[in-house]
Design a protein around this nucleic acid. Structure first.
Lengths: 230, 230
DNA sequence: TAATTTTGTGTTGTTTTTACACAAATTAAA
DNA sequence: TTTAATTTGTGTAAAAACAACACAAAATTA
């Protein structure tokens, strides 16, 4: 008979983006050994609860949000002593959300919930900084072969928003003309007839939307989203 | 206090390649409810054992092999009723090995161990067919952006071996000249001065080797392995 | 009304990719 | 021993994709 004394948890690395800055969501623990420490949202799963449901539940409970993109990242199985009594294995999830869509509010176990710029994430509990690092890499590479940037933007966005998102997350310059040409060539971004001047000065721009159904249709026809630059 | 009644297992999807055919390793269970059923090699982890160590141990125990490439694939957390008494969550690992390097021998829990052509994998226990499917996709896509094909070949190989491997795993035709040109342009495959005529007729070919140190050096210089075809 | 900011747009040279065929070295068969 | 069959090895040209680049238009602010 199997005698195992290991518990399973899930953790989420949730990225948000706003005005050229990429953020990660962290929560401050209320209870336990690590009270007051910042950690990733997450927690133990219930016996009859699918992993992904557990993540969604914890995000709702600890930060009051529902993400728009969620996928499994990796399982962190070694060196974790979350508790003295047993080993914990944590399944980490990668998530994206538009921070504008929610007001963070810590509920149950969390004392506080907060967005940290990825460049200034404090030392988190457990091995959570490692998770953030891995998730950050995943975001960077995924951005180039899957149209997930749209999950970080408003439904309607300026082309410059998309361009700035790519610039700031990938940390490189992008040629505006080539970028626009490329994205438009895919046919998955549609121009609306709305024109908007946001904030300060400058010529007003047209708003665009991501045509998700079109993207999924193209996928069936072997379309391959791919944005790379030199 | 956390009251969880879930056990953790690891499973491995081990691919082998020989003469144009891709194989997956399966073992036949000796004990338990699924006695005689074919399943992926794997099993429960020990309390103080890293996940990857558990995989290596099980592969050794159940099939007598040591793989040459091993990475985490995904964690299968839902719908598993391996045992009536508790839920099982399994961390699946993706592995590659050259079948020539080992003679399969079932040891401990396994009655038998066997290579199945991927196209003819029988119905396996648990959700293992799903794991094989996911691993197969991973292999296909990874082949295009990481030089892992060499882990499936002999240390010294003919260019045609490499080409056939790509053809058969990716299931498409490849232009021999363009393929060779591209691979050689990377500078990670070296020509030896050995010439060999294998098996049947035809002009003898030169043997090549994968220059792993060179590859890792190039990686540091932002080299990106990439093989794609129309 | 002049200066500043931001959007929008095309062309050209360079590089990469694709398509394609025949000679050389060997074995097997006539 | 000649002929057929098999497999390796190699180059070029056309097409496509990529990279680099600058200025006018629409608005705000000074």
């Amino acid at each position: 008979m199997i005698d195992q004394n290991i518990k399973i948890a899930v953790d989420a690395i949730v990225f948000g983006y706003e005005k050229g800055t990429l953020y990660v969501l962290a929560v401050q623990q209320r209870f336990g050994k690590l009270a007051d420490r910042w950690v990733l949202p997450g927690g133990f799963i219930l016996d009859d609860e699918p992993l992904i449901t557990a993540v969604e539940r914890e995000l709702k409970e600890e930060a009051g949000i529902t993400v728009s993109y969620l996928e499994q990242l990796a399982t962190f199985g070694d060196d974790i002593k979350r508790d003295d009594r047993f080993r914990v294995i944590s399944v980490a999830y990668f998530a994206l959300v538009n921070p504008k869509n929610f007001v963070l509010k810590a509920d149950t176990d969390a004392k506080d919930a907060k967005w940290f710029p990825v460049a200034q994430v404090p030392t988190l509990g457990y091995d959570h900084n490692e998770m953030v690092k891995l998730a950050h890499q995943r975001l960077k590479s995924k951005l180039t072969y899957q149209p997930i940037g749209f999950d970080l933007l408003d439904h309607e966005f300026l082309f410059s928003d998309l361009e700035n998102l790519y610039c700031s997350i990938l940390e490189r310059d992008i040629d505006r003309r080539n970028f626009r040409k490329k994205i438009l060539s895919f046919g998955i971004v549609k121009e609306t007839d709305k024109v908007v001047k946001i904030g300060s000065s400058g010529r007003p721009g047209k708003l665009f939307v991501f045509d998700k159904p079109k993207y999924h249709q193209l996928l069936k026809e072997n379309f391959q989203f791919d944005i790379r630059f030199a």
